[in-house]
C-alpha cells in the first residue's frame, strides 16, 4: 500500500489532567474522504487542532507527506499544504468576500513584504480567488462584506478561502453545523466537487446523512482514542459506537 499522506502516531494532548488525545493513531491516504465521528468531547476538534499546530502535542508524532510536523508552527504547517475550516465559522468579518479569499493567496502569505511591489501577481491572485469563489457559487457576492453573508454562504466562503491556499489535505470541522436541509444538500454537492481538487479530506460531522454520502471511510473516536474504523455502515452500527453516543450498554437501549 502507498505511503499515507498523513500519519498520526500515538498522538497525545493533555490539558492538565484531561487527556483530549490519548495515543491516537490515524492514517489518511491519497484520494480519501475520511469522516471523523464521535460524541462531543471525544477529541475530534482537538485532533484537528493538534495536526494544524494550534495545540502543541504532548506526545507522539504527526507525519505529513513524510515530514515530521509535530512541533512545527502553524503557518509552516499551512505552507506545507494543510488547510482547514473551523467549527464556529471564522471569517474576517470586516473584509469583503473577495478579500477573505485573497488573504490565503500563497505568494503573498509566504512573502508579505514582496507583496507590496508584486503588481503583476495581484491580478493572478484575484483570478485564483475568483476561480474558487465561482466553484463554490459565491461569484455574485464577491464585493459583499463577509459579515453580511447567509450562514450557508459563510460556510462556503470559509471552504473557498482554505482552497485558495491550495492545500493538499483539507480538514473540515463540522461544515454542516447549523445548516438547514437545503443548505446541507448543497454542501454535499460542493464537497463532492472540492474533493477532486485536493489529495484528501478529513471531515468532522454530526450529520450522519452527510457523513454517509461523502466519506469513503469512517473513524469513530471517544475519550481521545480511536474506537472503530472502517466502512460507514459498519462503523455506524458498531456496538462500541452506539455505546459511545448513547452512553449506556446497547442492550438497554435497543428499541
Amino acid at each position: 500500500m502507498k505511503q499515507p499522506i498523513l500519519e498520526v502516531r500515538k498522538l497525545q494532548k493533555s490539558f492538565g489532567g484531561l487527556r483530549a488525545l490519548d495515543g491516537i493513531n490515524l492514517d489518511i491516504h491519497e484520494g480519501e474522504v475520511v469522516g471523523l465521528i464521535g460524541p462531543n468531547g471525544a477529541g475530534k476538534t482537538a485532533l484537528l487542532n493538534t495536526v494544524t499546530g494550534f495545540y502543541r502535542a504532548t506526545g507522539g508524532t504527526i507525519l505529513f507527506q513524510n515530514q515530521d510536523i509535530t512541533h512545527r508552527p502553524m503557518h509552516e504547517i499551512g505552507r506545507l499544504g494543510i488547510g482547514r475550516t473551523f467549527q464556529n465559522i471564522r471569517l474576517f468579518r470586516r473584509m469583503t468576500v473577495l478579500e477573505n479569499a485573497l488573504v490565503a493567496f500563497r505568494p503573498f502569505a509566504d512573502h508579505p513584504l514582496r507583496s507590496l511591489i508584486a503588481y503583476r501577481e495581484r491580478r493572478m491572485a484575484i483570478a485564483r480567488a475568483m476561480h474558487w469563489l465561482e466553484l463554490l457559487q459565491l461569484a455574485d457576492k464577491v464585493d459583499r462584506i463577509a459579515s453580511s453573508l447567509s450562514y450557508g454562504d459563510a460556510r462556503r466562503l470559509e471552504i473557498a478561502r482554505a482552497l485558495v491556499g491550495e492545500p493538499s489535505l483539507l480538514l473540515l470541522d463540522e461544515p454542516a453545523a447549523g445548516m438547514n436541509e437545503n443548505e446541507t444538500r448543497r454542501l454535499v454537492d460542493d464537497i463532492a466537487i472540492v474533493r477532486r481538487h485536493v489529495r484528501a479530506i478529513v471531515l468532522i460531522e454530526h450529520d450522519m446523512d452527510l457523513i454517509r454520502s461523502l466519506s469513503d471511510r469512517l473513524v469513530a473516536m471517544d475519550y481521545g482514542r480511536k474506537i472503530v474504523e472502517g466502512a460507514s455502515a459498519e462503523v455506524l452500527n458498531h456496538p462500541e459506537v452506539l455505546k459511545a453516543y448513547l452512553g449506556t450498554d446497547t442492550e438497554e437501549t435497543v428499541s
Binding site: M74, R90, R94
Partner: peptide, 11 residues
C-alpha cells in the same frame, strides 16, 4: 482580526 485563522492560512 483573527491571528489563529491567519496562521492557518500560512501567514
Amino acid at each position: 482580526e483573527d491571528d489563529r485563522v491567519a496562521s492557518s492560512l500560512a501567514i
